[in-house]
């Protein structure tokens, strides 16, 4: 039972990070209409920047996180403007392939700049708590709380503000949004900024728990894809709930089922689901 709760807690922690990444990915999906393959390397870049700020410049963790989010938002917007906007009218396949190009550029750029070795974030908030036989570090609690706060803030932003409404409207019908007088190019830019900042936040949060290395984004992006397919592409609640579910499945699966094939558990689930329901669990027929 203790193992169960320990793994469940780990799963929630992982899931909150997955949710952040998937939420950003699903927002950007509304603009691109293909999943942005490069989302994972931006998460990696976020983790690196924060690592450098904390370890080399001695920044406070939260200052580093905020700065990283701002920097990555700007990078996300640049990518939208320079790479994806020129492809807006082209077949979706082209955006998909351009994103693969971005992975090459950014992942190998990181390799050149910072080398292949794993970086360990200096420990922050490493106090241990014990209760009911479970051990947990303060940092893990902070991850969950910060991720959930960000998700709630995003939900409020999308539901309650006009800008948020324009993002949803553009995703639902781009031409309709243009005819309503919405500047969809500006919306695209902002959405990329926000989505990328969320990925960066996830990278910064998980950095001190996992290690920081150039290909850390590849493993994650595949899981994020799995989440948004299972949750229905473009669905915001689907991405959030899907993130938590995947985190918990992985954690419990790793504890009970298999450690050898743990990392592909999610992909196996996805392939099985797609074989049964070609449009995902919550996806509409199209």
């Amino acid at each position: 039972m203790e193992l169960f709760f320990q793994q469940l807690l780990n799963g929630i922690m992982l899931g909150s990070v997955y949710s952040l990444v998937a939420l950003g990915l699903t927002l950007i999906y509304g603009i691109l209409h293909v999943p942005n393959f490069a989302h994972g390397v931006l998460y990696m870049l976020g983790a690196y920047l924060a690592y450098l700020m904390v370890s080399a410049l001695g920044f406070n963790f939260w200052v580093a996180m905020l700065l990283t989010m701002v920097i990555l938002a700007v990078i996300g917007m640049l990518i939208e403007r320079l790479v994806f906007r020129p492809l807006m009218e082209a077949p979706h396949l082209n955006s998909f392939i351009a994103a693969i190009g971005l992975i090459y550029i950014i992942e190998n750029g990181a390799l050149i700049l910072w080398g292949p070795d794993f970086k360990r974030f200096p420990a922050v908030y490493d106090q241990l708590y014990h209760f009911l036989g479970i051990t947990i570090t303060l940092h893990r609690i902070i991850i969950v709380l910060t991720a959930i706060s960000l998700i709630v803030i995003m939900q409020l932003f999308i539901k309650k503000t006009t800008l948020g409404a324009t993002i949803v409207a553009t995703a639902q019908d781009r031409i309709g949004a243009r005819l309503a007088g919405i500047n969809v190019e500006r919306v695209g830019l902002i959405t990329f900024g926000i989505g990328t900042a969320l990925a960066a936040a996830a990278g910064v949060l998980i950095g001190p728990i996992l290690l920081v290395y150039p290909s850390m984004g590849s493993a994650l992006i595949l899981k994020a894809f799995v989440i948004i397919i299972l949750g229905g592409m473009g669905s915001i609640p689907g991405a959030i709930i899907g993130g938590f579910i995947l985190g918990i499945i992985e954690s419990l699966g790793g504890g009970y089922l298999t450690t050898q094939y743990n990392e592909v558990l999610a992909f196996g689930v996805l392939v099985t689901v797609l074989a049964i329901r070609p449009t995902g669990l919550f996806g509409k027929a199209h």
Binding site: L222, M233, A275, P278, G283
Partner: peptide, 21 residues
């Protein structure tokens, strides 16, 4: 047989996941 019943991004990601496995 199963994968080609999906379309577009679903097919791309489904096959990508199969490849990783």
């Amino acid at each position: 047989l199963p994968a080609l019943r999906t379309k577009g991004s679903y097919f791309a990601i489904g096959t990508l996941c199969f490849g990783v496995i």
